[in-house]
């Protein structure tokens, strides 16, 4: 028995490792392509922003300082070795500090936004999905299905702008952008937390509602699938209350594909967060990457892209593990 469990976890580990290896290989490939592409394009960071006022000699000096004049291959090998061996992404040209510091500064903002958005999304999805699945084919079910489709069809950045228009301007109850008020330093810890919460409401709601409609449809479909199974009929035949059948037996079994969905939609969520961050000037990774691109800050662009890709890869790994933990069958499938 012990031997069998070991063999299973070994194959699961093997499966996860193969996935991880493929993802990392892709990441390296993408970054390599990006590295050379970025450098091949005319225009370098010494020509943007403050750089436009430089004299030719100053510019040359800067290019030397940033290592932009060395052979491209040497720059590339340097970059790969320092990233992979020392986790050192170099120095951001526009912020004049280590790329890793800029990334780590932006990470909490994105994490707060993403988790709040996720919470709104799944709360909405479970509520609507369960309500629809309880009486399939009813008017409520149709309304939720069609409403869900309409909701996830709305462009998230436009939804954000409309939310600003409605709740920050026509009916000004919430702040329209940024993460804190300007006077946040003067506030007490409790007040500043409240301040953060007020700034979080619109972006998190927009993010959650923007994708929650689709997730609700998914929850409904999975629940209906489960409700058609034999063991549900057995549970009903045993005389269990409909509430118990739905909330305990059906939902627990629908949880597996729903957790899987979190992993599958992770890249999309990060993209959504990026747009939301740009709309609401939310100082996260997306806004950082966006500004880095506008400033042609090569090290920061490469750092932000690889960092967010790594987050997605890790998130997928976590979702796979959670999936395996919830559903022992997957171990056999993975073998």
């Amino acid at each position: 028995m012990v031997g069998r469990t070991e063999a299973l976890s070994r194959t699961l580990a093997g499966f996860l490792l193969r996935r991880l290896a493929a993802s990392l290989l892709l990441l390296l490939l993408v970054l390599t392509v990006l590295f050379f592409l970025v450098r091949r394009v005319p225009g370098d960071p010494t020509q943007f922003g403050e750089g436009s006022r430089l004299t030719p000699t100053q510019r040359e000096r800067l290019q030397e300082l940033y290592g932009l004049k060395r052979p491209l291959l040497a720059q590339y090998l340097d970059w790969v070795s320092s990233v992979s061996l020392r986790f050192d992404w170099g120095t951001s040209l526009s912020q004049q500090r280590p790329v890793s510091a800029a990334l780590l500064d932006a990470l909490p903002a994105t994490a707060i936004l993403a988790f709040s958005g996720l919470a709104v999304e799944y709360l909405l999805a479970l509520l609507l999905g369960i309500a629809a699945a309880r009486r399939p084919g009813s008017g409520l079910d149709h309304a939720i299905r069609v409403g869900g489709l309409l909701l996830y069809s709305l462009p998230i950045f436009w939804l954000g702008l409309m939310a600003v228009l409605l709740f920050a301007y026509l009916w000004p109850v919430l702040p329209s952008s940024h993460m804190h008020s300007v006077d946040v330093d003067l506030l007490s810890p409790a007040q500043s937390l409240l301040d953060l919460g007020r700034h979080l409401v619109l972006p998190a709601l927009v993010m959650g509602f923007g994708v929650g409609g689709g997730t609700a449809r998914y929850v409904r479909a999975r629940l209906l699938e489960v409700l058609g199974q034999d063991y549900i009929r057995t549970a009903r035949a045993k005389g269990l209350s409909e509430r118990r059948v739905l909330w305990v037996h059906a939902l627990r079994n629908a949880a597996v594909p729903i957790v899987q969905l979190v992993g599958v939609t992770l890249p999309g969520m990060l993209s959504g967060a990026l747009l939301i961050e740009v709309v609401f000037s939310w100082p996260g990774l997306g806004l950082l990457a966006f500004n880095a691109i506008l400033a042609r800050d090569y090290p920061l662009i490469l750092g932000a892209t690889s960092f967010s890709a790594t987050l997605v890869i890790l998130g997928n790994l976590a979702a796979d593990l959670a999936h395996a933990w919830l559903d022992p069958v997957v171990r056999n499938e993975a073998a």
Binding site: R19, S23, L34, V264, P267, T305, A309
Partner: peptide
């Protein structure tokens, strides 16, 4: 390869 490609945040790359 398809697995890996599906788990990539393309918007970041597309932006770049």
């Amino acid at each position: 390869g398809v697995d890996a490609l599906m788990a990539f945040p393309w918007l970041f790359l597309m932006m770049a």
